[in-house]
Each structure stands twice: as C-alpha cells, then as structure tokens.
Design a protein around this nucleic acid. Structure first.
Lengths: 254, 254
DNA sequence: TTGCTCCTCACGTCACGTGAGGTGGC
DNA sequence: TTGCTCCTCACGTCACGTGAGGTGGC
C-alpha cells in the first residue's frame, strides 16, 4: 500500500537504507505491484521503525537482526545495556563540548589541571611567555611519559614559588636569558641560586618526584633536549658549577 | 622523544590512527631515530590533541586539515557551529533513549500521541485486542500517508466516544464479529447504528477529516484492504445498506 | 632465542552514498 | 515529450581495522 519512499520518509530513513535492509535480510522483501514496485503494509512500518530505533542506538545491523528475532526478555536485557551505552555517549559528547571550548579559548587542554595551575602561577609571577612555553612543552612530554605522577609533581613545584627568594631568582634567571655572557651580574645570580638551593634542601630528603626524575635518564634527556639555550644561561651553569666546587672545597677544609 | 604508541596513548587514539593522520597529511611526519622509528616532540602532542578534539566533535578529517591551518577567528566561528551541532546530537541521543524505552515497554512508538490516546480509549472502553490491532495498523498507514492530518483526526474520533450510545454500538459491533451471520440480533445493531449516525450528522457539515477521507480513494482502499472481515460483519453491512434504502424510501414518500 | 615495539603495504569493514542505465504511469 | 518515482547492478566513501611479512634492541 505504501511506496518505498513513503515508508522511508515516515521512518526517517533514506530509500537506499530500506533497500540495504532488504539486502541484509533485516526487513522482508514485500510484494511487488504490476510495475515491479515494492508495496509495504503496516507491519513493514513497524519492522522498519524497530530496526531504526536499534540502529540509532548504535547497534550494528548484524546484531539488530538477531535481536529482533530473539525473544523479548533478551531484547529487554539488551535495551538496558544500550541505554547505559547511550548515557555514556551523552557524557562523552558533553566532554567533547568542554574540550572544544578549551580549543577555542586557548591552549589549556593538553595538560592536567595541576600543570595548568603551575603554568598560571609562572605567568602571575611575571615569567616571560618564552620561558612559560618552553616549560609547557617539557610538561607535555612529561605528562605523556608519566601521566600518573605529573600532577603531584607540578603541585610540588608550584608550592615552591611561595618562597619570595625563589620567585626573585626565577625571575632573574628568566631576565638573564638575553644578557651578555660576560655580564658581571650573572655571578651574583649563580651564587644566590646555589645558596637558596642548599638552604632549601639542607637536612631534607629529596622528594619522590626529585628521585624519579634523577633516576630516569630518559626524562632528563627529554627535558634538557627541549630546554631553551642562550650564551648567558650556559655561562650561568658554568658559574654555578664553579661556585659548587668552591663550596665543596670549603666544606672539605673545615 | 616520544614513540608513536606513547603519543597515541596520551592522546587516547590508536597507533593506526596516528599513522592515518600522517598519511592524510594532517600530522607532519616527525624525525626518525636510528631504527627508523618515528620520534615525537611536544608540538606533535599538541597537534594530535587538536586533531582529536575536532574529529571527536564530528568534523571530517578533510575539514580538520583546513580548519587547523586557517586563522584562529575562523576556527572560533566553526567551533561555535560545532558546539551547536554537538548540543543537537546530545538531544538526539536523549530522544533515542526515549524510543528505546518505548521499544522495550511496548508498541507505542509507531504512532503520534493522539492516535495512541485514541487506541488507549478503545482499550479502556473494552474493545477487543483483535479490533484494536486492526485499527492500529490502519492508523499506521494513515500516519505514513497523511502525517499532518492524522493527529487532529484521531482526536476527533476519540471525542466521539464520549457518547454512550456510540460506545454501546461500537462494542456490539466488536462482539458481533464471531456471530453467525443469521443471528437475529444483527438487524437491531444495524438499525441502531444507522439511527445514531443520522442523528449525529443531522444538520451538521461533515468535518474536514471526513471530507479528506471520502475524497481520497487511495486512503479508503488502504483502510478497507486491512480491515478485518467476518461473515457477521459482511451481513451487518448488507443490513445497514437495506435499512438505509428503506429510510430513503420513507423520506421520498413523505 | 623469545617477546615486544616498530615498520610498510594492502585488502577488509561498516552502513550506506552515488552515479549508470533503464522502466512505467501522468 | 517531460518529469517523477521506481528498479538493479556496482563502484565509491569514510576512518580507520586487520592481518602479512619483516626489522631492531633487550
């Protein structure tokens, strides 16, 4: 009584989809009229809507077949599973919306929130974008390699910035990037940094995070390979090493 | 620095997907190490996450390519569209959950709510499942052919059942299905039905729905082809026709 | 030697989409 | 005659999946 396009339109599918369901054996082939056209009755409408309902719910056509011919109690079980699956997919889509918003807003979606908080703190303190981006890249790699630890570690580093002297030195270090390597102020920075480090770690065990990094050569290589380099910073490292050696000697003498 | 599986795992995609993005030119091919393995840096993580975010939002890969290389303002516009699209799909999934529940609960999902209300009314009155199912099939076909009109029409028919005499006759008609065609009670039912119809339509214009059905031969054929048939019902029609003729004659004489 | 990760083809999959070429009633 | 719907192949599409056969470091 209905033509294929009427059937398809009522069910909200394409004509091709109906033919596809015939081919797959999901929907029985109806009688033909004198022109060879398929003619459908009410049962076909019901069958097609049942197929579409399951297909829309994400059931593969191969499974739709067995589901609709199975007994109703098994169908009811499956419907429960499908409903849970749909609920899960709705949550997923909500998450995708959040990520899209982040994509539009900026670059925060590539890192766990603790790392984002740490980077925000750097910005707040006045660290340059150049250094922040360099750190961000290092954190991304760390997050990819040690996703379980990177959160706590970032928090630890962020808390370190509550110390005003630490903040002052980090800023000085940042600013020194462009300096001439012979700048006399570099020696003072190196000395102050070393003094601070020694004070901070005096009598303290290194944290788990410290140990983890120290022990993982790959991670160290990973960070240093991406670290920014400049003549002034290379000089700073040399000065710090020299100062370290001097302090060691003093310690030996006393 | 990262291997392909580390990169893939962090982004939540398969290794094959990453290779696929390389092949499509979405993600630049990175450097190889001495074994010919791909080695990825932080930028690759960012790039891949951007690709995944858009792909998850339903953007075809061909479009992802142009979107990520386009300027950020166009990206922002598109993100808005994508977000609306995602919101639409969430609604759709919610709808699918409703339809699934209907599929598990019963058979109500194939018809507009007014028709369901009409069929519920039939059940409430005590009409047999046999007749209700026959009517349901006819309504499904009508809904497929005249989706715009079937709602109001069903409501009209449902309101008709507020008349107690109409209800009594509809029930009698239902019960008579199995009777012997020579049963003497059939004549009374036919006469009462005709009297009621004449009373109902006396001085009243036929409704739009009536006209529409009367004028659409295809719809009439469609309904009658699916109508139940029994010897008693055929007899009822004959009796009604004869009574109609007798009344016409009386009218002519007066 | 075994197990694991990586590599490159290249065909397979899923649910249809999309012509290609033709028919039938208005 | 034109336009519309229908018909049957049969190849195309999209985003990978899935072996097939091989390499390299522990």
């Amino acid at each position: 009584v209905l033509t294929i396009s009427q059937l398809a339109a009522y069910a909200g599918v394409t004509v091709r989809a109906v033919r596809h369901y015939h081919q797959r054996g999901l929907l029985p082939e109806p009688e033909r009229d004198s022109s060879g056209y398929r003619r459908y009755d009410a049962q076909a409408v019901i069958d097609l809507l049942r197929i579409k309902t399951l297909a829309d719910a994400g059931v593969p056509l191969a499974r739709v077949d067995s589901l609709l011919s199975a007994d109703p109690s098994r169908l009811a079980d499956t419907v429960e599973e499908l409903d849970a699956e749909l609920a899960r997919r709705i949550k997923e889509l909500r998450d995708h919306r959040k990520r899209l918003a982040q994509l539009a807003a900026g670059e925060r979606l590539y890192l766990p929130e603790q790392v984002v908080a740490y980077l925000d703190r750097l910005r707040e303190i006045g660290i340059s974008d150049r250094l922040i981006e360099s750190e961000r890249d290092a954190w991304i790699l760390l997050a990819a390699r040690m996703p379980e630890h990177v959160g706590t570690w970032a928090t630890e580093k962020r808390v370190g910035f509550d110390d005003p002297e630490f903040r002052r030195l980090y800023l000085a270090y940042d600013v020194a990037y462009d300096w001439d390597p012979d700048d006399p102020r570099l020696a003072q920075i190196a000395a102050d940094a070393l003094t601070l480090m020694l004070a901070l770690y005096a009598g303290k065990e290194p944290t788990d995070a410290d140990m983890m990094i120290m022990n993982d050569r790959e991670v160290l290589a990973l960070i240093s390979s991406h670290a920014l380099k400049s003549p002034a910073w290379t000089r700073l490292e040399e000065l710090a090493s020299a100062e370290m050696a001097r302090l060691s000697e003093l310690a030996d003498q006393s």
